[in-house]
Nucleic acid binder design. Structure first.
Lengths: 124, 124
DNA sequence: CTGTATCCAACGGGATACTG
DNA sequence: CAGTATCCCGTTGGATACAG
């Protein structure tokens, strides 16, 4: 059965609702950072070590944006050397289930999609 | 309770799984086009009319990518003037539930996020 | 350890004009 | 009607160097 009557949640307001979230989480690193923080409080260097390929710059930028949007909390401990711990806020945690839904879909369908891609390239 | 034991679906393979889907659906128009096609078979011009702000170029590109990935079917009717109808494939339809999960999250949390943004800007 | 600053290449995407 | 072709600009993000 069609779910058309529900897709207004996506299309609503000329797409402004879905765009609001896309603008925030649809970049190269945000979802990976959020997923990594789901284990609890993690410090900067540990995050960088657990997320292969991310640069200091992009980790900083991603964390700042998440903090600014209230999805991640940042705690500075007055020590030497400095220790900064990042953790998901309740809002941040609430993003995990929909993110998992997406990841589940990807896990299930990406193989078929890749096959379709190759077939498409083959015939032109 | 933490869902950490599940987030491997997001982080798995160094993030390649989640990246695979992000690369395909996280652009300005894809989710809107998919949601619009959930009503059934729609022709090019109708799509453009129902998706405010999309240009011919971007609608074409988005549809081509979706077709190439096997999420959308394209049917050309041999008439004059030409009539082309686009529709979701089963794989395309399967994307609707996770997309709705995301949209639901957005609807629920975006107000709080925007407030957090403004507070962040205010204090610097 | 936890960042900032700068430079730069690649890409997405808008505007516009043209076509079978 | 349903596209294609070109131009062009803003943003994203990588590399690198520097700093508190």
């Amino acid at each position: 059965m069609s779910e058309y009557r529900h897709t207004c949640m996506i299309r609503g307001d000329g797409g402004r609702v879905i765009r609001a979230i896309l603008d925030r989480i649809c970049n190269k690193w945000t979802l990976l950072v959020v997923a990594t923080l789901d284990q609890g409080s993690v410090r900067f260097t540990d995050l960088q070590r657990q997320i292969p390929g991310i640069s200091q710059r992009m980790l900083t930028l991603t964390l700042r944006n998440l903090e600014r949007d209230g999805l991640v909390s940042r705690t500075v401990h007055a020590e030497v050397p400095p220790r900064v711990e990042y953790a998901l806020t309740p809002t941040g945690k609430s993003l995990i289930p929909p993110a998992l839904a997406l990841a589940g879909w990807a896990t299930e369908h990406v193989p078929h999609i890749e096959a379709s891609r190759e077939a498409y390239e083959a015939k032109g």
